[in-house]
C-alpha cells in the first residue's frame, strides 16, 4: 500500500517537472525518425530497426530520468522525511523504480501508433512485434534499475546522471573484447552485455535465459540501491 502512495507521488512529481516532458519529446522525436528511417531503408513492416535504435537512446534518456530519483531527496532534505516515516527503504526504492518504469511505459504506449501504421501499410509479424516489445521493456527496466542505483549513491544529480551513463555504457560495450580474451572470461563478458540479450527478442524469439538475465539485473541493482540508502544511517 505504501508503495502505491509513494509511486503515485513520484509519478506526479515526474509529470509536474519540465524535464520529463522534454525527455519524452526528445524520445518521441528520435522514435519518429528511427521508425520512418527503418521503413524507408528496409521497406519491411517490422519494428526491429526502431527498437534496435531506441535501445541506444536509453543510454542517455534513462540517466536523465533516474538521476533525480534519490539524489534530489538527499539534496532537498526530504530523505530525512522518507527515512523517518514508517516506511522501509525497500518500499521507497520499489516505488521509485515503478514510477520511472510507468513513465517509460507511457512513452512505449505512444509508440503503438507506429504498430498501427505498420498494420495499415503491410502485414507485420505480430509474434516478432510482441517479442520486441517484451525484450525492449525488460531492457528498459534493467537500465532504470542501474540509473536508480546510481542516484542512490550521491546527493548530486549531476554525479548520479554521469555515473548512470558510465555504468550503462560499460554494460553496453562490455562484450567488445570478448573474442580477444580467454574464452571463459569472454563468455562471461558476453553474458553481461545489456543489448546482447535484446537481439533474440528482436528476431521474434522469447528465450527464458534473457528474461531471467534482465530480471536478475533489475533485482541486483535495486538491491544495491536499497543497501546504499540504508547504510546512510550509519554514516
Amino acid at each position: 500500500m505504501n508503495v502505491w502512495y509513494l509511486a503515485k507521488k513520484e509519478l506526479r512529481s515526474y509529470l509536474l517537472s519540465p524535464l520529463a516532458w522534454v525527455l519524452l519529446a526528445v524520445y518521441f522525436a528520435l522514435g519518429g525518425y528511427f521508425f520512418s528511417g527503418a521503413i524507408i531503408i528496409t521497406g519491411r513492416a517490422d519494428m526491429t530497426g526502431y527498437f534496435a535504435n531506441m535501445a541506444i537512446t536509453l543510454l542517455f534518456v534513462v540517466p536523465a530520468l533516474t538521476m533525480r530519483l534519490w539524489a534530489e531527496e538527499e539534496a532537498r532534505g526530504t530523505a530525512r522525511f522518507l527515512l523517518t516515516a514508517p516506511l522501509t527503504v525497500t518500499e521507497v526504492v520499489t516505488a521509485k523504480f515503478l514510477a520511472a518504469l510507468a513513465l517509460m511505459l507511457l512513452a512505449e504506449l505512444v509508440s503503438l501508433v507506429y504498430v498501427l501504421i505498420l498494420s495499415r501499410l503491410g502485414s507485420p509479424d505480430w509474434g516478432i512485434i510482441f517479442a520486441s516489445y517484451l525484450g525492449f521493456t525488460l531492457l528498459m527496466a534493467a537500465c532504470l534499475a542501474v540509473g536508480l542505483f546510481a542516484s542512490s549513491i550521491s546527493s548530486s544529480q549531476m554525479v548520479a546522471g554521469l555515473t548512470a551513463f558510465g555504468l550503462l555504457l560499460l554494460l553496453w560495450v562490455v562484450d567488445w573484447v570478448s573474442s580477444s580474451v580467454p574464452a571463459g572470461l569472454g563468455s562471461v563478458l558476453k553474458a553481461l552485455s545489456f543489448p546482447g540479450h535484446l537481439i533474440d527478442f528482436l528476431k521474434g524469439m522469447v528465450v527464458t535465459d534473457h528474461i531471467v538475465f534482465y530480471l536478475s539485473a533489475v533485482f541486483f541493482f535495486l538491491f544495491l540501491a536499497v543497501e546504499s540508502i540504508a547504510k546512510r544511517t550509519w554514516a
Binding site: K9, R80, L87
Partner: peptide, 17 residues
C-alpha cells in the same frame, strides 16, 4: 516511526506539490 513526528532543521518539502 509510527508514533513519531519530526521536523528537521530544513523542512522536508516537495516544491512541486
Amino acid at each position: 516511526k509510527k508514533h513519531l513526528g519530526y521536523l528537521p532543521e530544513v523542512p522536508p518539502l516537495y516544491d512541486e506539490l
